[in-house]
């Protein structure tokens, strides 16, 4: 059986909020190392990969592999019934029909329990090759979100160009063009504002802003975001979570102009 207790329901609420507009029905694959999810959007352009390691829970117990097929809109409805600070316990039997979610208020005696009916989801699983990216940009997640939002007003696509000079987000649309260039930046007083660019070779790729803006819904989960690029391969946008856990988004490039 599965029994996983999260100190704060907020984590799962935010994760589900960040991915529910991209993917609808997902298997939460549970085993003794934690809870993993991999799902592609309907058009096979973007992929979500989440890993909540067993250390993120206390306690965590999962005796055998269990796939919990859950509709994210149903899960959202139930998670709305939890306060951010509630303790969340997820329980399921070994061959379950339902998953049980229990919310406990940390400062009162309220205890809420919900069951969600599970679905049989036949999901395509993709092998993601280990990639040494040519460029990795680490920047404040709100800054990345703002750039995506601002450029979305002008164009459907953004070109991301990394050179030793910095990283340039540029777009070209009907009303005109725009570009934001960031250089490496280190702020000792305010390390959350740091911008780090690790580059082994220059990279230039074009991506859909609609998808990038969608990924940015995860901005509330981590203060910084890693944007990993190599020419001719999908982009990786990674939000690190506590206990070595993560929420990653992969996006196929567009054919440049």
């Amino acid at each position: 059986m599965l029994e996983a207790r999260l100190e704060q329901a907020e984590l799962l609420k935010k994760v589900v909020d960040a991915i529910k507009d991209l993917v609808q029905d997902c298997n939460f694959d549970c085993n003794d190392s934690g809870v993993a999810l991999q799902a592609m959007d309907n058009s096979h352009v973007a992929l979500v990969s989440m890993m909540l390691k067993s250390e993120a829970f206390s306690p965590f117990r999962c005796d055998r592999n269990i796939a919990l097929g859950i509709n994210l809109s149903s899960l959202t409805k139930v998670l709305r019934c939890a306060q951010n600070n509630d303790i969340l316990t997820v329980k399921a039997e070994d061959a379950p029909d339902v998953v049980n979610l229990m919310f406990e208020s940390s400062d009162s005696d309220r205890l809420s329990e919900y069951d969600i009916k599970l679905m049989d989801i036949d999901q395509e699983h993709l092998g993601i090759p280990e990639t040494e990216y040519a460029a990795t940009v680490t920047m404040p997640s709100p800054e990345f979100q703002r750039i995506c939002r601002d450029l979305s007003a002008l164009s459907e696509s953004v070109s991301i160009e990394c050179t030793k000079e910095g990283v340039k987000f540029a777009c070209n649309g009907d009303i005109g063009s725009g570009a934001v260039t960031l250089r490496s930046h280190s702020d000792v007083e305010n390390p959350d504002q740091n911008i780090k660019i690790d580059l082994t070779e220059p990279v230039a790729l074009t991506f859909s802003l609609k998808y990038l803006s969608n990924f940015c819904k995860a901005s509330g989960l981590a203060k910084s975001v890693n944007i990993c690029l190599s020419n001719e391969v999908p982009l990786l946008v990674e939000y690190g979570l506590a206990a070595n856990s993560y929420l990653r988004f992969y996006l196929a490039p567009k054919i440049g102009d």
């Binding site: 592609m40 058009s43 352009v45 395509e124 993709l126 092998g127 459907e156 609609k210």
Partner: peptide, 14 residues
């Protein structure tokens, strides 16, 4: 969407 590649050309189904 115009000019959009998919992930299937990059990642293999397992």
């Amino acid at each position: 969407e115009k000019n959009q590649k998919t992930l299937l050309g990059f990642f293999q189904k397992t």
